[in-house]
């Protein structure tokens, strides 16, 4: 792995990584992957996020859906754990709460396959500093 030797190195690296992530998030390529983030802080794991993550990884592969599943930290919605965020190519991210394997199955079948939303969406209620 290349070490970062200067601030310029870091900036270049940031740009290349950012464009990679942007592509993933904004889905400029309509065939690009579905991106799923599972909130895996202690609170999430305690409520079963790990099982949900494993289930989704297995099922998405079985059902032949190109996707990237990553873990992330606490989204702040501890009352609704486990929570996951699904970003369909070209769409705004959607957060689902109280996700068990049954709900995860419903999300795959309805939202990911057909774009139909399902009950249990958690509306985002904060601002990120990027907008400031």
């Amino acid at each position: 792995m290349a070490t970062i030797k200067s601030l310029d190195d870091l900036r270049k690296m940031k740009e290349s990584l950012q464009s990679k992530i942007n592509l993933r998030e904004k889905g400029e390529d309509p065939n690009s992957h579905v991106q799923i983030k599972v909130a895996m802080a202690t609170c999430g794991i305690a409520s079963g996020a790990k099982t949900v993550m494993e289930f989704m990884m297995e099922e998405l592969e079985k059902r032949g859906i190109d996707s990237i599943i990553t873990q992330t930290g606490c989204m702040g919605y501890c009352y609704a754990e486990p929570t996951i965020e699904v970003t369909m190519p070209g769409k705004e991210p959607v957060v689902f709460g109280y996700v068990d394997t049954k709900k995860a199955d419903e999300i795959i079948e309805k939202y990911i396959k057909n774009g139909e939303l399902v009950d249990g969406i958690i509306p985002m209620n904060y601002e990120t500093i990027d907008k400031k």
Partner: peptide, 18 residues
């Protein structure tokens, strides 16, 4: 929706921490 601004939590629940 401007009541919450995430500064310290800006990446929490956004990036893969690992």
């Amino acid at each position: 929706y401007r009541k919450q601004i995430r500064i310290a939590l800006r990446n929490c629940g956004f990036i893969n921490p690992e």
